[in-house]
Design a protein around this nucleic acid. Structure first.
Length: 491
DNA sequence: CTAGGGTTAG
């Protein structure tokens, strides 16, 4: 993959070790062992030659289950082509048929790579095997269409569900509304809602989704109007409704309204819950009112409402950003000591980012090391944070070292990782760095990520300016194959 | 993750 002596310590994978690990755990069915299996199989897939992969997958020592397959696909999430290759070969296993959820994952992966032909072929295959499609399949595809800027296709997909033997109901109606709203297509969602609300008997969930959509685009008056209409139609607001509006006010920086709304909720005794408190703590913190955040936190404990991990995360993040990482760590340690809830990956990432932000990379790495204590593994976001800050501080080697650890197998880099790293290859203005940037660019394409035009141009220009014409041409050839049209280069 | 509300951050 990378030439020997490259600064990228992409570790060669020790095949012998993995095979023994596979053999050892093939006989145990416990969930933990299955996680190990999934990791070992994912590695196997990543390193294997496409021709020898099938026989490896058909070995009788591997006990395929839907759960195991799902886990492997999740591990390969950031390597779409390999994930689909794995799915395809296993699909020909003489004694195993893919589950609906495995098909869903595969369709998601293909659609994320904008390979809609494969996605639809998978859907057809799923259907011919009578394994679906299920409503979730359509939700996945719709979401991919929306995030690719094709919301009309998503709506049409929903409208044509029944042609694929999948019933349209209130559930799926609410799903498509939510997908549109979450991607800020609230107007389109609202139109669809108005057209079909009678047909599907829209409920409070539907109204909450639309109101939330307007809150997301900072149109709280419109959100209120939708809710008013809901009440006029005889549907009662729920806790979700109130919490949605509350969050909307904060998002729209209507602090006064938010506070009054919160007080009103308390006065009406409509059992304020942990979500309400978390919203308020987060909202005030983001607005810089840390004291108020702390006060509300204490208040909730006094009222006997147990903070959740999200509550702690909100407070810890707010302290990191508006006070100091030190006071955030105090709360972190308190959380661990009291043991009411356990830190999750988000908690760690927030603290790690806090340390990075003040330049204390040692302690950031220290916290990353502590994740194991809580049974957690660093996520791609954890790595990306460290990577970003090392690179921003000009410690390119350290950044590459972090990247090397990911390549070692526990965590595949994502689009962000590549963007950050490629960007960092320009700071030293060294010819070798640009070659590395070019290799990273090639690698990300191989893994199913589509670099931005800007990235292509930048890398190509850099290579040409440093006399790496041949390599630039190679990248140009690759680029034309992956469908990104870049301006003509003078080579 | 996939019918609604709270936690990273792009």
């Amino acid at each position: 993959m990378f030439p020997k002596g490259s600064q990228l310590h992409l570790l060669p994978l020790s095949t012998k070790h993995e095979f023994s690990q596979l053999r050892r755990s093939a006989f145990t069915l416990a969930d933990g062992a299955q996680t190990e299996d999934a990791a070992a199989i994912a590695k196997l897939v990543l390193e294997s030659d496409p021709r020898t992969l099938p026989e490896a997958l058909y070995r009788p020592t591997i006990k395929w289950t839907p759960e195991l397959v799902d886990k492997v696909l999740k591990r390969l999430w950031n390597h779409g082509p390999k994930a689909l290759q794995f799915f395809k070969h296993l699909g020909r296993h003489p004694a195993y048929t893919h589950s609906p959820s495995a098909f869903d994952h595969a369709i998601d992966i293909a659609a994320r790579m904008r390979d809609y032909n494969s996605a639809w072929a998978l859907l057809a295959r799923m259907r011919s095997l009578r394994r679906g499609p299920i409503p979730r399949t359509f939700a996945i595809l719709a979401e991919r269409y929306v995030s690719a800027g094709k919301p009309h296709r998503a709506v049409n997909l929903f409208l044509s569900m029944h042609n694929y033997g999948c019933r349209q109901d209130l559930h799926s109606f609410n799903t498509i509304l939510d997908i549109l709203c979450k991607s800020k297509r609230v107007e389109m969602a609202h139109d669809l809602f108005k057209t079909l609300r009678n047909k599907f008997n829209a409920d409070s969930v539907s109204y909450n989704i639309i109101a939330n959509g307007y809150c997301i685009v900072k149109r709280t008056p419109m959100a209120l109007q939708v809710l008013k209409e809901m009440v006029e139609r005889g549907i009662s607001p729920t806790m979700v409704t109130y919490n949605t509006m509350l969050k909307g006010y904060f998002r729209n920086k209507q602090l006064k309204e938010a506070w009054e709304f919160y007080l009103e909720m308390r006065k009406r005794k409509c059992e304020i819950d942990v979500v309400t408190y978390t919203t308020v703590i987060h909202g005030f913190g983001v607005a810089g009112e840390v004291k108020k955040s702390r006060r509300v936190f204490d208040e909730m404990v006094k009222e006997g409402v147990a903070p959740s991990v999200a509550t702690y995360n909100a407070l810890i993040q707010v302290l990191c950003k508006k006070e100091s990482v030190e006071s955030a760590v105090v709360v972190f340690e308190e959380m661990v000591r009291e043991g009411l809830c356990v830190p999750n990956v988000t908690t760690y990432n927030v603290v790690i980012r806090g340390f990075c932000h003040v330049g204390d990379m040692e302690r950031a790495l220290g916290f990353m090391g502590r994740m194991e204590e809580h049974g957690l593994r660093a996520s791609v976001q954890t790595y990306n944070v460290l990577l970003r800050y090392f690179c921003d501080a000009g410690e390119i080697e350290k950044g590459l070292e972090v990247f090397g650890k990911m390549g070692g197998g526990e965590c595949l880099p994502n689009l962000d990782t590549y963007n950050v790293l490629i960007c960092a290859m320009f700071v030293r203005k060294k010819s070798e760095d640009l070659v590395v940037a070019g290799k990273l660019l090639m690698e990300m394409i191989d893994r199913g990520f589509l670099p931005r035009k800007f990235t292509f141009n930048r890398v190509l220009n850099g290579l040409v300016l440093t006399g790496n014409q041949e390599f630039a041409k190679e990248i140009l050839r690759k680029q034309s194959k992956c469908g990104r049209v870049v301006r003509r280069l003078k080579l």
